[in-house]
Simulated scan of single mutants.
Amino acid sequence: MQKVCVIGGSRYVGKLLVTRLRAAGHRVTVVNRGSTVPPDGIEHLMADRNDEAVLAAALGSRTFDVVVDQVCYTPVQAAIAARAFAGRTPRYVMTSTIEVYDPATAVLPAVPPGIPVPEELVDPATWPVATGLPWHDDAYRQAHYAEGKRQAEAVLARAGGFAYAGVRSAHVLGGGAQEFTGRLAHYVGRITRGAEIAVHARALPSVFIHHEELAELLLWATTAGFTGPVNACSDGPLDVYDLTAVIAERVGRQAVHRTVAAGEPASPFSFDRHYAMSNARAKALGFPFSRTTDWLPGAVAEALAAVPSPAA
């Protein structure tokens, strides 16, 4: 049994992680702004993580065996957390993203298509940090999501007050209406209606993970001893044609594709650039991944059930 603090933990993967931590016998504390009350048996601290004084006051004299940060998006947020939790925990786990590898958002070493991207492509120990940028502006933060995550990792990795581990999640699917990005529902809805789907002619594959598998990996990461980043993705990359084929089979309709040129906007999982991750490090550390094609039909069924009927 460990004392685990989850920052966020109010929806989707974070909510599922909290319930699994509790079921595993851990003492769980959730820190969020109070919009969602955690399940019974979970300590709830209401605080805005962006306000360092309020966060420190809410934490009081508490200490934890590990902190899992589900909602760190900027180096400013990371710096506040590093100061607030220094001396309170020996281990800090941040949920990061595949987007840190997107070559459209940073100058990165080229990785040939077909070669899974390893963690060392983005090293948080050496990544430059610029806390003076307008990270508090919502529009700026959303437009620079990938860079915010890269810099947040860098701040926490260098903080020195705890051991740092980062979980770089693939595109998360599953959960039906809980999947707040709506990307799988986008495809399910368009295929169901027979609407066109914009795709690149030479669409490159990406990697995915089921929301329950990601919650299980984060649960594993709370007690695992690794440090630094690990990639989290199910086995078996898919391109947009593979993805829509699985959806079309489950929906019982043909997918209608409209080809766009490289560099032009397309549907959410049509990529004209390569950054499909390798999960070899997490496997070597002991985490077993499922295959994407094993859980994807079920995730499609959940999304289909959540799509409003034409008469609605």
Rank of each mutant, 00 (worst) to 15 (best):
A154V: 12
G298C: 09
T126H: 15
V129K: 01
W127N: 07
A58Q: 06
D239T: 12
V100K: 02
R88Y: 07
M94T: 07
P90G: 09
S96Y: 03
A106N: 12
V67C: 08
A81E: 02
I7P: 02
E179F: 09
Y241R: 11
A110S: 13
I7R: 06
V188Q: 01
T223W: 05
S309E: 02
V256P: 02
Y164W: 15
L214N: 02
V230H: 00
Y275D: 05
F289I: 12
E302M: 13
G161N: 13
D272T: 14
H144K: 14
A165M: 14
I98Y: 14
P113F: 04
L55D: 03
D294L: 07
G25Q: 14
P128S: 05
D239I: 13
E153L: 15
V37R: 12
P103W: 10
G176D: 06
L204I: 05
E99S: 15
L55V: 04
R20T: 07
T19V: 11
G14A: 10
G148C: 09
L108M: 03
V260Y: 14
A177W: 05
T105N: 10
V300H: 01
G252F: 11
P38Y: 05
H211I: 12
A82K: 02
D40Y: 11
F271P: 01
F269T: 07
R193I: 00
A47Y: 07
W295N: 00
A110H: 10
G225K: 15
R11S: 14
P103M: 05
V54P: 04
K283D: 03
V18M: 07
E212S: 14
Y145H: 13
S267D: 15
A79G: 10
G228L: 12
S206L: 10
V100M: 04
M1W: 08
A81S: 14
A215I: 15
A224C: 11
Q151M: 10
G298L: 09
G41P: 12
V307P: 00
D69C: 12
H136L: 10
L173W: 04
Y73M: 04
G228P: 09
V167E: 10
A170M: 10
V199C: 01
V188F: 01
H257F: 15
R11E: 13
H274K: 05
A221E: 02
A276R: 04
H144Y: 08
A58W: 15
G148S: 07
R62I: 09
A215C: 07
A203V: 11
F180H: 12
V246D: 00
N50R: 12
A125P: 03
V230G: 07
L21N: 01
A280G: 05
T223F: 14
A198E: 08
L219V: 12
P128C: 08
I80W: 00
V28Q: 14
V76Q: 13
G263M: 06
V107F: 06
V54Q: 14
R150N: 01
Y73P: 00
A261Q: 09
V188L: 04
A255C: 11
M46T: 15
N231L: 06
Y145W: 11
D137M: 05
A305S: 03
I115R: 04
A245F: 03
F162D: 03
D239N: 15
Y164G: 06
